[in-house]
Simulated assay, not measured.
Amino acid sequence: MPTCTPSHADPRWGAQAQLAKCRRHGACTFYTHAEIGFFLLKNRPEPGQRPEPIDSGGYFDHTPHSSGHDFRRQGDH
Rank of each mutant, 00 (worst) to 15 (best):
F30W: 06
H65L: 05
R12K: 12
F39G: 01
A34Q: 14
T29L: 11
H8M: 09
Y31F: 02
P45C: 09
F30I: 04
H77Y: 09
R50N: 08
M1A: 11
A27D: 04
R73I: 05
L19Y: 10
Y31T: 12
M1E: 10
H25D: 14
R12L: 15
F71A: 01
T29C: 08
Y31M: 02
T29N: 03
P51W: 04
H77K: 05
T32V: 06
A27W: 12
T3I: 01
F30P: 01
R24C: 00
L41A: 02
H25T: 11
H65T: 11
R44I: 15
N43L: 10
P6T: 05
D76A: 05
S67K: 07
A20H: 08
A17Y: 06
Y59S: 03
H77N: 09
R72E: 00
G37M: 12
H69M: 00
K21Q: 10
P53I: 00
H8G: 05
E52W: 11
L41D: 00
Q49K: 14
A20M: 05
S66T: 12
A27V: 13
G14W: 03
H8I: 04
A34E: 15
F60A: 06
Q74A: 08
T32R: 13
D76I: 07
Q74T: 01
D76F: 03
N43P: 00
I54D: 00
S7C: 09
A20T: 03
P11W: 05
H25M: 10
F71G: 02
W13D: 10
A27S: 02
G57P: 04
S7D: 14
H69W: 11
M1D: 12
A27P: 00
F60K: 08
Y31R: 09
K42N: 10
D55K: 03
G57W: 09
F30E: 07
E52C: 13
M1L: 09
C28I: 12
G26A: 02
